[in-house]
């Protein structure tokens, strides 16, 4: 009897999810024993055409990490969907958009202008830009189309399971693979490899009373490692973030930044975090409230660091270019 087939793919990603799998250390050999790996661009030399010839639904498990931001990634998402029985959105980028999702504050033109022309260390007198196709003596070279908007995997193809995290922690990755091997998966559409509570459930810090008179950036103070960071004025997304990671960031005195995505009952993670942060400000005076809130220079970045594409609004308005954070704040205050 042939072994079940496993594919791993990386789209708009940093490679951290690949490392998350490799961090199984010796257990990776058990995985290699249990599965027949048919695609793993980071580690193994299979080509796309090897996947194209596979029958539909013949890949038993596909761990797809990275967001969808160009036509190649979109193509592979569709291809792997066709060929896979169980398609898993693996890691924050595939789940909610991740850090690449922040590109949704801009568009293709703005990004290309910056990357290929405006960065201080770029010398591009000829104004060279990536082209979709380019003729060379040897033939036609093509590049994928770069889209304006970053999307999550589930916004492109139907997905069976989501494994959150940037990257998913080792214990959870082990757990998920184990569950697949043992056939112990919940109903399709579920988030696996995480808990149904928030990061606060994993965090061992002492919580007393949430009344904020001032927000601090993480570099402004050295927080007390035993007390809740939010209560000390450091913005921690933990209360609005799905748990199960074991709160490793908190254990090194850094606030949670929300990489595991929204808790089960929350539709828009950033909106909820915003609501919670505002609700605990200890003031009823409009001028003082403005002063307290001024300490958060980039509300969008704070609330949607890993989840902008998965949010209700998904991206900044395309028509007018995104206002830089500072100008946007000034405009909001003038009204």
């Amino acid at each position: 009897m042939s072994k079940p087939k496993l594919a791993l793919y990386w789209a708009a990603s940093c490679g951290g999810c690949e490392i998350a799998v490799v961090r199984l250390y010796a257990k990776i050999l058990d995985v290699a024993d249990a599965f027949d790996i048919v695609l793993w661009p980071c580690i193994m030399d299979f080509k796309y055409k090897d996947v194209e010839v596979l029958p539909d639904k013949s890949i038993d498990l596909c761990l797809f990490n990275g967001a969808i931001r160009n036509s190649e990634q979109e193509h592979m998402a569709h291809l792997l969907r066709e060929k896979s029985k169980v398609l898993v959105a693996f890691g924050a980028c595939a789940h909610t958009g991740g850090i690449p999702g922040l590109a949704n504050v801009a568009d293709r033109e703005t990004i290309f202008q910056r990357v290929y022309h405006d960065t201080p260390s770029t010398a591009n007198g000829d104004g060279v830009r990536p082209q979709l196709s380019y003729q060379v003596p040897e033939g036609e070279l093509t590049l994928p189309k770069f889209y304006d908007t970053v999307r999550t995997l589930a916004q492109v193809v139907p997905v069976e399971y989501f494994v959150p995290g940037c990257p998913p922690v080792k214990e959870q990755v082990e757990g998920v693979i184990q569950a697949v091997v043992e056939g112990r998966l919940p109903a399709p559409g579920s988030v696996v490899g995480a808990s149904d509570k928030t990061v606060c459930d994993n965090c061992t810090r002492v919580r007393e009373e949430k009344r904020i008179r001032r927000f601090y950036r993480p570099w402004e103070i050295v927080p007390d490692p035993s007390r809740c960071l939010l209560e000390q004025g450091v913005i921690c997304a933990g209360p609005a973030t799905r748990g199960g990671c074991g709160a490793p960031c908190l254990s090194v005195n850094m606030p949670c930044r929300g990489c595991y995505g929204p808790p089960p009952n929350v539709v828009d993670q950033g909106g909820k975090l915003l609501s919670a942060l505002a609700s605990i400000i200890d003031s009823q005076d409009p001028a003082e409230i403005e002063r307290v809130v001024d300490a958060i220079p980039d509300v969008l970045g704070t609330c949607y660091l890993f989840g902008l594409p998965a949010s209700l609004l998904r991206r900044v308005r395309l028509e007018g270019n995104a206002l830089p954070a500072k100008e946007a704040v000034e405009l909001a205050k003038a009204l």
């Binding site: 504050v105 950033g270 915003l274 609501s275 942060l277 505002a278 609700s279 400000i281 003031s283 009823q284 409009p286 409230i289 403005e290 809130v293 958060i296 980039d298 509300v299 969008l300 609330c303 609004l313 900044v316 308005r317 395309l318 028509e319 007018g320 270019n321 995104a322 206002l323 954070a325 946007a328 704040v329 405009l331 909001a332 003038a334 009204l335």
Partner: peptide, 20 residues
């Protein structure tokens, strides 16, 4: 509470490109 949430929401909406 509405007042406080609005203070933050306004800034977010502006950043999203939704005019004040």
């Amino acid at each position: 509470n509405t007042m406080r949430r609005t203070a933050l929401l306004r800034r977010l909406l502006s950043q999203m490109g939704i005019e004040p």
